[in-house]
Amino acid sequence: MFDAQDRPLQIDITPEGTRVTMRLAVERAARYMAGHYPGFPILPGVLLLDSVRQAAGRALDAELRLRRIDSARFARPLLPGDELTLTLLMTARADRQTEVRARGTRSDGRRAADLSVTLEPVAAGVRPPPAGRAPHPAGRGPLLDHSQVRARLRQRPPMLLLDTVQEFTPPDSLVATKAITGGEDCYQDMAEGSGTDAFAYPPALLLESFGQAVSLLWSLAELGPADEIPLMAGIRGLAYAAPALPGDVLEHRVELRHRSGGVGEFTGETRAAGRSILTVGSILVVSRRAAALLPTTPAPHPPEDGR
């Protein structure tokens, strides 16, 4: 996972709440960049969300997890060589949850993202309901196996987070799966003796996996040209209902709510063994040509004093 734990923080107490500033370098050599996307790496938007969680946790000296994504807008991509400045405004609530409004700004001064999320403490000893795997109907295989899923998605390990497509109802809905195992890349630095809670699948990766199911629906329904990439541009009303653990099989149910030109709005839910893991009110997707995502030489910015 993207590690923001060692980056310096600036913390200020204001009448509006606690303001936190953190700067992060976007590094081409990082593992998550190699898989998102090969040939034109872009920082995954879900890792911006996780950076907000990490920065807030460090400022409060607490281990936090995402509870809700109230809204998110990804305005511009972050490319290798960029420096991201994250500015958070945190407000504590009586129920121990923390509301965070955050803005990400690129090194050229342009806005990359605006995020509004709710975080909650990781409560020691909390266990999800027993996990199990629903029996697969006899004689029925997936609509798309993993080789076919891989052929349709541009992500590659460790950011390839889907296994199969079980159902597709043209052009409006899709059911895709992701099996969580203890060998996932996100668990590679887990300390020996860690308890069950430590193996909760990272919420940012849950969202990335759901987003890849959205991309598959986009591809199968031919909602855009084959040479364009569907990119997550906005999120509203997303809530994490329960943790998922190794042994769970995530079942992403995605529905197309509306489409106009190269823009689509999707909704859905993720379940595992009959329990709700994630509910998504709205994800906005825009289609962009791959060539348009490659870095260009920026024009020089005039000095702020106009001279």
Rank of each mutant, 00 (worst) to 15 (best):
L64D: 07
L162H: 08
D248I: 11
P38A: 13
G183R: 14
D185N: 14
T14H: 08
R154E: 10
E208D: 06
Y37G: 02
Y32F: 05
L294S: 14
F266A: 09
F168N: 02
M190I: 09
A59K: 07
I11L: 09
P171W: 07
S287M: 11
A290H: 09
A151C: 08
R307G: 15
P225W: 04
M159C: 09
T105Y: 12
H36D: 00
F199T: 04
S215W: 10
L47K: 08
D114E: 04
R23D: 08
R154D: 12
E120G: 04
L24H: 15
L47M: 07
L48K: 12
P171T: 09
A241N: 14
A134F: 12
L217N: 03
F74V: 06
W218D: 13
A56W: 03
D305N: 06
A138N: 13
F168W: 05
T14K: 08
R156Y: 00
L238S: 02
Q54D: 09
G274T: 01
Y240Q: 04
S287Y: 13
D189T: 05
M90Q: 03
G109D: 04
E167V: 13
G125L: 02
A29Y: 15
P157S: 06
I283E: 08
V122K: 00
P142D: 00
T270C: 01
T279R: 08
P203L: 10
T177F: 07
G211T: 10
A272H: 01
P171S: 10
D114P: 00
G139T: 06
E184L: 00
I180N: 10
V149S: 01
V20W: 00
E269G: 12
E167F: 11
F266N: 09
P246E: 04
L207E: 05
V285I: 03
F266W: 09
Q97T: 12
E99P: 10
W218N: 14
L174E: 01
E120V: 06
G211H: 07
I13K: 15
R275G: 00
L294V: 14
L115I: 05
R236L: 11
D70N: 12
V165I: 03
P243R: 01
L115Q: 06
Q54V: 04
D50Y: 04
Y37P: 00
L88R: 00
L49K: 02
L162N: 06
S282M: 12
G264C: 04
T21L: 10
T169R: 11
D108S: 05
P129D: 10
G268S: 02
L64E: 07
R96P: 15
E265W: 15
D82W: 09
G17N: 06
F199V: 02
S276P: 13
A102Q: 00
R307Q: 13
S282Y: 12
P225E: 07
H301L: 14
L220E: 00
G211F: 06
S276N: 09
M1A: 12
D95E: 02
F168I: 06
D82L: 08
